[in-house]
Amino acid sequence: MSILEIENLTVTFHTKDKITRAVHNISLSVEEQDSIGIVGESGSGKSTLAMAILQLLPKRIARIEGEVILDGKHLFQCTDEQIRKIRWRDLAVVFQKSMNALSPVHKIGTQMSDIYRIHESKISKKKLKEKIISLLEMVNLPSRVYDLYPHELSGGMMQRVSIALSLMHNPKLLILDEATTALDVVTQGQILSEIKELEKELNLTRIMITHDMSVVASACKKVAVMYAGNILEFGYVKDVLVNPLHPYTQGLLKSIPTFKGEKKNIRGIAGALPDLSVPVQGCIFASRCEFATDICYQVKPTEELLSGNHRVACHLVGGMEHANVNHS
């Protein structure tokens, strides 16, 4: 059963002199206990997508179209009050620097209890403390953290605190927006494996937003590759990363050096992200694509569904498939 259903989600920012399309017509369905990684360059709209799901975008300039259905609830039709109840209960988020949200003048335990009480005020002090300490232990923090101030913790510990905070009310869906990016290699590795463990325990569904392919490779089941507000390729990690079909995914993977085997030459993708305020007629990636043909500039490619729920939006991929069919 799918827990989150995103249908034709489009986010546009209306500013004084231009309209920027940050997210363009995205459909995605997240199954229960899935772990989906969303990768892309900066400016590709990954965070905007997450913020749109959470409805945290500034209402004055952001227009959201489409549907987001979380566990049967149409999020865009909810009132603010209803959304407040859904956040943290059903849907929690950890940001890249969510440790900055911790108050420097309150002890970790006090802050956590305050936040807990917002959503569930009927709990005795003693029980609450037990609950908080068990949360801290869940993310491998010693219970003495309860009585410490944020400045006494390291970056990794604070990020663990914010993960513990997000898990406080057993959310169904957890969104990690670059949650491990600012951390050290070793700490990142540890936190990733802790999250994977917790997932099994708590029945979590997880969306990870990152620009680091290797994080997705090690911690997610499925991956969506985003570019300039569009999802270009989607599928199981083992399909997409081993056998990438979209030229953009191929380019991204070619630009990362390998650890084993020969030192292959790496190269980047030439060019830069297109200006999102100018509407593009054809494929959004055409201007940077080395295989682009005339059709790529004129017609927007539709998503081709290949075997194993592997979806690719590229004329070349679809074309080749069709050619093969014609031959046989």
Partner: peptide, 20 residues
Amino acid sequence: NSVQLDSFENQQIIHIAGEP
């Protein structure tokens, strides 16, 4: 601990205790 793309399936992570 540093995850690599070309060997993500059978990665054995060595845990080291504590913080830097």
